[in-house]
Design a protein around this nucleic acid. Sequence first.
DNA 1: AACCCTATTGATCGAATGATCTATAAATCG
DNA 2: CGATTTATAGATCATTCGATCAATAGGGTT
Lengths: 209, 209
Amino acid sequence: MDQTSSEIAAAEPAERRRLPPEERRRQIVEGAVTFFADVGLEGKTRDLAKRLGITQSLLFNYFANKAEIIEAVYAHVYLDRLSDDWPRRLTDRSVPLRDRLLTFYTEYSQLIFEYEWMRIFMFSGLAGAELNRRYLHHMGTVILHPLLEEIRAAASAPVDPQMEDIWNLHGGIVYIGIRRHIYQVPTPDDPSEAIAHAVDRFLGSFGVV
Amino acid sequence: MDQTSSEIAAAEPAERRRLPPEERRRQIVEGAVTFFADVGLEGKTRDLAKRLGITQSLLFNYFANKAEIIEAVYAHVYLDRLSDDWPRRLTDRSVPLRDRLLTFYTEYSQLIFEYEWMRIFMFSGLAGAELNRRYLHHMGTVILHPLLEEIRAAASAPVDPQMEDIWNLHGGIVYIGIRRHIYQVPTPDDPSEAIAHAVDRFLGSFGVV
DNA sequence: AACCCTATTGATCGAATGATCTATAAATCG
DNA sequence: CGATTTATAGATCATTCGATCAATAGGGTT
């Protein structure tokens, strides 16, 4: 099972030492983010150390154990991903609903269509992490449900949307990132056109101008 | 990192022996499918054996090494998933396009919205398996591209769809399975309604009756 | 009931892994 | 410049892992 062995590269040309602790810690966390995004959360500490150009034992001077390193990776990847003024902006009816949706998904896709985020989110989801359920629940209640109400308010078609429809819109967009970073197949460099079309189809079907 | 340790259960109450080789092999493969779907492809052979109620060494009497077990899992999970008369049925214009799409996605979702399939596909995708790229390429050329032509032929709206639009339809539907089996959040027991709505929105936006 | 074939077990090997501990040397301070 | 601090390296431990192999026993055949 060494399809992800890591003789890939050691970042540093080696032989530098004694960084200030905060800086070293930051360097380890950032290296760990891309390392675990590459090989999965079961990546070996020796491989991580090699990639960082430090010894394996040094890792345990900054983190009590491997689980703590992964905690730090989670924190670094997830922190402040969901800007907390999106709920407000999404419900600001002085702006056309279409514009609100487009700016949201443009910004949101820029955040999550990122190699590290997408893959670590998927790895931790498969590992059964509570984190992912919390994240999706938050997404549903704080973003998508208000969105549902906005669309209902602006709709003129006989059928009115349900949460599952909003999840469908959301999923179709997120799936671009899954294709790109999980399955690693070609996707449009700039997804904004595909996103715009998806949003327009969605709004159009509910009779939103 | 033992969030997926496996004291979960040993299937057999133990102490039975000497099955016909083909049957034992089949039993191992089936057990391995759900085992690796649960814990990932880095699951330990000792845990797999424990779940099967056999010794770890017995595994290596049927498979030369762990990689061979996983090959057998792939084969068992993927084989004949894509019925090869779907391309024909999807392009059979004696049937309304909407009906063709609905039956396709109803059948297809029944196949892939399955715990084992969904999770092993995701695990192998993250591991960088060529398998997934081949599968998605096949999906694109054999199913989705013909579908694109069908929609173009039936469309009456000024804008005509692109492959990326079809992928959007597809992704929105597949995402239901991802939520259910990867993130393990609640989804509709029967996704057919959500699928039908997604299909109708899609076709409607291109002016397909 | 004795025999034989072989499916299965149990013990074990060598490598890899997370973690610990002591020795070393880089930087800072007086 | 010498002493002190401490970030870092190197050696090592206890487990765990995939894999091997000789010993055992299930069960069909005669």
